[in-house]
Simulated assay, not measured.
Amino acid sequence: MEGSLILANGEKFTGQWQGKPKDHIGELIYFTGMARFQEFITDPANKGKIVIATFPGVLNSNLDHSKFESDQIQIGGLITQQDASMPIDVKGINVLDLFFEQNIPVLTGMDTRALIKRVKKEGEMPAIISSKHAVNRLSAHMEDIYADSGTEHITLNGNKHIVIINFGYKKSLIQSLCQSGHKVTAVSGRIDISSVHSLKPDGIIFSGGPGNPLEWQKFFPDYKKLAMKYPTMGLGLGHQILALAFGANIEKMPAGHRNFKEAVIHTGSQKVFMSNQNHGYTVNEKDLKQHGFLVTFKNIHDGTVEGLVHEQYLVVTYQFHPEQIHNPLNELIFDHFFKTVNESKGASVYA
């Protein structure tokens, strides 16, 4: 049967509906990757988003649960040019079967080129994916995408205790921390600061996650207090939240950085790295110095801020994320942070 994608600007696109009838409202974004589709659709930063896949063979992606960034699909809907009536050649789990099992709508046979032109021109916007060709539904509320998890003791033994402020952490972050031999505990972003102190952390990581960082504004004073007391690292959304907590500003990007090979340059060494990014907001570089920050990484393509270090406190932040594979950027991020954690009782260490 047919289904529709209705944009906030009123435009309507029709394709072949795959799955049970339902409606879903979410932010419309696009993914340009030709691979690593499974990591992208299970990334908590994509919770509720409607994703346009630019690669026409995306339904032929092989799926491996060990590569998932969370236990389930996080996106709210998928738009693809691929014709689902054609044979889909995959090993193991069929992508469409996984979407069917989790009741995530898919529209196939879509004009993805036209859709991406709209997003690039008008910016990422709300949209509704509907099996009923519904109109005038964008006034409805989007699903709550903000994490409210409790305390989770992930690894009980280790040399140092790392506490994650959890806005929607990725499994690859946990994997990296566990491999480093650290004790790891995750707590909700809706923190009780005294409870965090009682955990006696040696270091704190503000994780990535979905949505607008200003949604966490009432907690900024507590976030700042924690970052002033403990060696702290922010990743993705956590990078934006920490910048805001110290007084910096953010901007909504017309079309975010959403791929696994985004080029960034380290301002100190002038070395270029390929990074894993998935975000629609960026930290405004203006007045960062006034708030104590120096820029450590910039985006090669548009010059946006990709990394910060605080001049007074042991705080480093990165717009990009560690990956499940070892690479020089992973080593740079974690080697610096773990060195800071280990030496925080003595001299300060900066990137």
Rank of each mutant, 00 (worst) to 15 (best):
57 G>P: 01
57 G>I: 04
57 G>L: 14
57 G>M: 14
61 S>Q: 12
61 S>P: 00
65 H>W: 07
68 F>N: 08
70 S>G: 09
71 D>T: 13
71 D>Y: 07
72 Q>P: 00
74 Q>I: 04
74 Q>W: 04
75 I>P: 00
76 G>L: 12
77 G>E: 01
78 L>Y: 06
79 I>P: 02
81 Q>F: 07
81 Q>M: 11
83 D>E: 02
83 D>T: 00
83 D>N: 12
84 A>C: 08
89 D>A: 13
89 D>N: 15
89 D>Q: 13
92 G>V: 01
94 N>H: 14
94 N>A: 11
96 L>A: 02
96 L>H: 03
99 F>Y: 10
99 F>A: 11
103 N>Y: 07
105 P>A: 10
105 P>H: 08
106 V>W: 02
106 V>K: 04
112 T>M: 02
116 I>E: 09
116 I>K: 13
118 R>Y: 01
118 R>C: 09
120 K>Q: 15
121 K>N: 08
122 E>F: 15
123 G>E: 06
123 G>L: 12
123 G>A: 08
124 E>Y: 07
126 P>C: 01
126 P>R: 12
129 I>T: 05
129 I>F: 02
130 S>H: 06
131 S>P: 04
131 S>M: 07
132 K>W: 09
135 V>M: 09
139 S>D: 13
139 S>Y: 12
140 A>E: 15
141 H>K: 14
142 M>Q: 14
143 E>P: 05
